[in-house]
Structure formats: structure tokens, C-alpha cells
């Protein structure tokens, strides 16, 4: 994102969701500074749901830690049950801290990006810019609905046109040996004392 690039966020309708009024003020000041004129402020997931069923939103920025309906639940609801006009809306999650037990929920809820608090304007604008520039495919499957999470394409190694002739085939053939027993696997994992 070049500082000299030109952006126009004036026509966007941005929804901000946070149960902490001060945090909502912070987000409001940030997106207002970016030039957003139309901001829908919601203090809970339920309130956000109500607004999302009424009108089109161009971007949702939501806190994660909220009582009753948290940011993950709100995101999952949007991806599965929101009206068609808002089901694919870009969603940025903002979290002060992610508990270890919630990492999987964060991965699977269907958000475009997650940002760690404290909010830095540069990070927020960068993510908005990335969303506007990217061309990610949407995936819908029983266990997930949202933008494709495997979107980083590194390509072939530097200096290579594609796969090397000596690379192994991507096709996984039939197993040539019997599977290891659990005891054999345990033995491989067992820490052993080494004398140097």
C-alpha cells in the first residue's frame, strides 16, 4: 500500500460492532479519518444482526470478545444466514487477545482478516486495501463458509519456471509398506537421553 495511492471510502457503508463504547469511539475515529461518511455503530452482535437484515453493508469491523453473541458467532451467522446482499460482506475481526481454546473458531468463522488490538490506523487501512485488491474465491462447505483460507500462492522456487523434473509426483500412490503400529510411533516420539 503506497502512501501516494489514492483511495475513496466516502461512499462505503461501514458497520462497527463492539460492546465497549470507548473501543467503538476509537474505531469510529479511525474510519472517519479514512473518509468514511456512513458508519453503522452497533454495541452487540444482536444489534448488528438486526441492521444486517435491513440494508446493504460494504464492510464489517467487529470486536471478538462480546457477551452473548461474540464476533465469531456474528461472522458465522453472516456467512450462513444473513440476507444475500450481506452474506459475502468483507469482515475484519478485531481482538485484544485470542484464547488458545478459540483459535480454531477464529480460523473457521469465515472472516477475511483478524487484527490484534490496540488498533493501529495503518494496519486497519492496510487490511481494507488488501480486501479491495484481492480476488479470493468464496468457499461454501458444511464445515466452512467464507473466503478461501489458502490464498497465499508462493509459486515455484526462485529461478524456476515451474515444477522441477526431479520433483516427486504430486500423486500419492498405494502404500508400499504396512502402517506403523501405535507402539512404533510412540517409540519414535519418546524423548531419550543423549550423551554428548
Amino acid at each position: 500500500m503506497l502512501p501516494s495511492a489514492r483511495i475513496n471510502l466516502e461512499k462505503l457503508v461501514v458497520m462497527l460492532v463492539d460492546d465497549n463504547p470507548q473501543s467503538l469511539d476509537i474505531l469510529g475515529q479511525v474510519v472517519g479519518g479514512f473518509g468514511v461518511r456512513s458508519v453503522v455503530r452497533c454495541s452487540s452482535g444482536q444489534e448488528a444482526r438486526t441492521h444486517l437484515t435491513k440494508g446493504a453493508i460494504d464492510l464489517v469491523i467487529t470486536d471478538v470478545q462480546m457477551p452473548e453473541m461474540d464476533g465469531y458467532a456474528l461472522t458465522s451467522w453472516i456467512r450462513r444466514e444473513a440476507p444475500e446482499q450481506n452474506r459475502f460482506v468483507p469482515i475484519i475481526l478485531i481482538t485484544a487477545h485470542t484464547r488458545k481454546s478459540e483459535v480454531t473458531r477464529a480460523r473457521d468463522c469465515g472472516a477475511n482478516y483478524t487484527i490484534a488490538k490496540p488498533i493501529r490506523p495503518k494496519t486497519v487501512l492496510e487490511r481494507i486495501y488488501w480486501i479491495a485488491k484481492e480476488d479470493r474465491i468464496f468457499i461454501e462447505v458444511d464445515s466452512y463458509a467464507g473466503p478461501d483460507r489458502r490464498f497465499r500462492r508462493e509459486g515455484p522456487p526462485a529461478g524456476m519456471d515451474g515444477r522441477r523434473a526431479e520433483d516427486l509426483s504430486a500423486h500419492v500412490g498405494q502404500a508400499t509398506m504396512p502402517n506403523l503400529s501405535q507402539d512404533q510411533i510412540n517409540a519414535m516420539m519418546k524423548p531419550t537421553k543423549v550423551t554428548l
Binding site: R6, V31, G32, G35, K122, L125
Partner: peptide
């Protein structure tokens, strides 16, 4: 919407947001 012309430079947007904060 974002690249529809008009608006402001990224540097200006960031400066405005910092000032607002």
C-alpha cells in the same frame, strides 16, 4: 467504491485517522 476516483491519498487518510485518535 474505493478506486472510483476522488477521495484522498493513503498518507492523508492515515494522518487524519491519527489526528482523530
Amino acid at each position: 467504491a474505493m478506486f472510483d476516483g476522488g477521495g484522498k491519498l493513503v498518507a492523508e487518510a492515515l494522518a487524519s485517522a491519527d489526528k482523530a485518535l
